[in-house]
């Protein structure tokens, strides 16, 4: 479940948590775009380091490290494939290496920024943001409910596993096919109880007048604060700098820099 942990929101208060989720989302998208714009190692390293103050400010270092560790497996695969193909494409070892590291780092930057977003944005807050950008409430509700039920489902999976182990199920027994089949007694109760729960939820909601009026009111209304404007400024700033560099400046590779020093 370690991959989920990296996306699991924990209620704490920090300047980052208090930011408007819409602005945060725009920021994450900007980082996303910049990461795609550059294939060179140097700017990606800068981009990667640029996120770290956010993590520290939000106080989610532990969770963030865990999500990075969760991404390590995929990152390794990306690194190896890039390296092997670049090398086979008859580039030098140094250059292939740099290229592979850059591609891996690009992936990590994407994961990094999304994980910061999800770690510091409560599902309710996110739902509110969607609603106030005029996304229909049905979608917003479905979205926030889904997000909120992920940890519940993970816990339920654990209980089901316990219940079946108590009836003598051994997950690690048998050959590859048998092992996959071992998971049937876990998946079926999990799916059935998820469906059962969703039907019950629907009934409970309807009996509390869900969808009775077109226009819902909210207890909380999102407002922009100083921090939000600062983040907008930062976003526009780095986007402008990135575009300028991309268009007008040559980016040296690390290999060249090293060669120059010698």
């Amino acid at each position: 479940m370690s991959v989920f942990d990296g996306l699991k929101f924990r209620r704490v208060y920090s300047p980052i948590h208090n930011l408007d989720p819409r602005i945060k989302f725009i920021y994450v998208c900007a980082i996303f775009v910049i990461a795609i714009m550059f294939g060179e190692l140097l700017p990606l390293i800068i981009l990667f380091t640029f996120q770290i103050p956010f993590v520290l400010l939000a106080g989610v270092k532990r969770e963030w490290i865990r999500s990075m560790r969760g991404a390590a497996f995929l990152a390794t695969i990306i690194f190896l494939t890039n390296f092997v193909f670049a090398y086979l494409g008859a580039r030098g070892i140094g250059q292939s290496l740099e290229n592979a590291v850059a591609m891996t780092l690009r992936f990590i930057v994407l994961i990094e920024s999304f994980s910061i977003f999800f770690l510091t944005t409560s599902p309710d807050h996110l739902g509110l943001a969607l609603e106030q950008t005029h996304v229909p409430y049905e979608f917003t509700f479905a979205f926030t409910t889904a997000v909120r039920f992920v940890p519940v489902l993970a816990e339920e999976a654990q209980t089901i596993m316990d219940a079946q182990k108590a009836r003598g199920l051994e997950l690690e027994r048998g050959n590859f096919l048998k092992r996959i089949r071992n998971y049937i007694p876990i998946l079926i109760p999990l799916i059935v109880s998820a469906i059962r729960r969703s039907l019950e939820l629907a009934e409970a909601m309807e009996s509390r007048a869900w969808g009775a009026t077109k226009k819902r009111t909210n207890l909380y209304v999102l407002k922009m604060h100083k921090g939000d404007f600062i983040l907008i400024a930062i976003t526009i700033g780095i986007l402008a700098v990135a575009i300028y560099i991309r268009l007008y400046l040559p980016i040296p590779s690390i290999n060249q820099l090293l060669a120059n020093i010698n």
């Binding site: 339920e156 089901i160 108590a166 009836r167 007694p185 059935v192 109880s193």
Partner: peptide, 16 residues
Amino acid sequence: ARKVGFVFQNPDHQLF
């Protein structure tokens, strides 16, 4: 488990 039978609180966690 062969010696210790355990019936869980919620039957829906085991029926499949």
